[in-house]
C-alpha cells in the first residue's frame, strides 16, 4: 500500500526535476539565443521585408511592390555580371586554396625540420588585415613599378599586364590575393586533421605493403581527412562568395564591372545609390545561394559517409 502511494510522488519529483533541468537549460541558452535573434535573425527578417518594398534609404515613403525588385534583377546586367564574376572567382579560388593548403600541410607534417617556421610563415597572411595589406598588393601588382612586372621584365624580358586595371586579369589577381590568404588558414585546418590520424595506421600500412607515400596517402590520409575536407571546402567557398574587402580597397568593381562581385554590388546599390529595397532583394538571393552551397556540400558528404 505504502509503495503504491509512494510511486506517484516519486514520479512527481522526477517530473519536477526534469522540468528544472529543462528550465536551466533554456536559461543557459538564453544569452546566446538573444544575441542570435538580435544580430542575425532579426536583421535577416528586416531585409526580407525590405526586399519586397521600394524603400530607399532616408525616404519618407515605403511601398509594397511584391516581387518587383526580383523582376528587375532578372534584367539587370550589372547584377548578372557580378553574379558570374562571383562564380568564376569561386571556381578559381576554392580548388587552388584547398589543394595548396593540403599540400603545404602535408609537406609540413612530413618533415619535422623547420615545421614551426613554415607553419608560421604560411599562417601569417591569415593574421594580416586584408584592407591594410591591400596597399602592399597595389604596389606589388602595379603595372610599371610593381614587383611582379619588374621581375617579369628583368628575368624573362616580358612586359606584364596591368594586373588590377586590365579587365582580363583583374579577377585572377583578386583571386590570387584570396588564395594567398586562405591557403594558410586551410593549412592550419588540415594540419589539425592530420594530427588526428593515429600514427599506428601509417605503420600498419607500411607493414601491409604500402611502401610508397602515395599508397599511404590514398589508404590512410585521404579517407581520414574526409570531414576536414568538407569543412575546408565549405568555409573556403563561403569566404570566397563573400569576397568584398579586396574589391572595395583595390578595384571598386572596375574596370567596367570586370571585378564587380555580388557583395560589392549589394553594397553599392544599398549604400552608394541608397536603393535599400533593391539591395535587400539581392541580399536574399545571396543568402539563398550560400545556403544552397552549404546544403549541397553537407548532403553530398553525408551520402558519401553512408555509402562508405
Amino acid at each position: 500500500m505504502a509503495d503504491a502511494n509512494f510511486a506517484p510522488m516519486l514520479a512527481g519529483a522526477h517530473r519536477a526535476r526534469a522540468f528544472g533541468a529543462t528550465l536551466s537549460g533554456w536559461g543557459l541558452a538564453l544569452p546566446a539565443t538573444i544575441l542570435m535573434l538580435a544580430m542575425i535573425l532579426i536583421p535577416t527578417l528586416v531585409a526580407m521585408l525590405l526586399a519586397v518594398t521600394d524603400y530607399q534609404l532616408g525616404a519618407r515613403s515605403i511601398q509594397y511592390i511584391g516581387l518587383g525588385n526580383f523582376a528587375e534583377l532578372l534584367n539587370d546586367r550589372v547584377f548578372w555580371r557580378a553574379f558570374n564574376n562571383t562564380l568564376i572567382y569561386t571556381l578559381m579560388t576554392v580548388p587552388t586554396a584547398v589543394l595548396l593548403g593540403l599540400g603545404v600541410a602535408l609537406l609540413i607534417e612530413a618533415d619535422a625540420f623547420g615545421r614551426g617556421f613554415f607553419r608560421t610563415v604560411y599562417f601569417l597572411p591569415v593574421t594580416a588585415l586584408l584592407v591594410a595589406m591591400a596597399t602592399v598588393w597595389e604596389f606589388i601588382l602595379h603595372s610599371d613599378l610593381g614587383l611582379v612586372n619588374q621581375l617579369l621584365a628583368r628575368v624573362f624580358g616580358i612586359s606584364g599586364p596591368d594586373w588590377l586595371s586590365d579587365p582580363n586579369h583583374v579577377l585572377s589577381s583578386l583571386a590570387f590575393i584570396f588564395v594567398w590568404q586562405q591557403t594558410g588558414y586551410n593549412m592550419i585546418l588540415f594540419l589539425a586533421g592530420l594530427k588526428a590520424i593515429p600514427s599506428d595506421l601509417y605503420s600498419a600500412a607500411k607493414v601491409d605493403g604500402a611502401d610508397r607515400a602515395i599508397d599511404r596517402f590514398l589508404m590512410v590520409t585521404w579517407p581520414a581527412l574526409g570531414p576536414t575536407m568538407l569543412f575546408v571546402v565549405l568555409i573556403t567557398t563561403l569566404y570566397s562568395f563573400r569576397v568584398f574587402d579586396t574589391v572595395a580597397a583595390l578595384t571598386q568593381g572596375g574596370p567596367a564591372n570586370a571585378s564587380n562581385v555580388l557583395l560589392y554590388n549589394i553594397y553599392r546599390e544599398g549604400f552608394v545609390y541608397f536603393r535599400t529595397g533593391f539591395a535587400s532583394a539581392m541580399t536574399m538571393i545571396f543568402l539563398a545561394l550560400i545556403l544552397l552551397v552549404a546544403l549541397i556540400q553537407i548532403h553530398s558528404f553525408e551520402r558519401k559517409e553512408k555509402r562508405s
Binding site: D200, L201, A204, K206, D211, P223
Partner: peptide, 20 residues
Amino acid sequence: LHPKLRDIAMVFQSYALYPH
C-alpha cells in the same frame, strides 16, 4: 629492407584497422 619486403606481419595494440 623496407617493411614490405621483410615478410613480417604486425598486430598493433590499437588494432590499427583502416576505419573507412
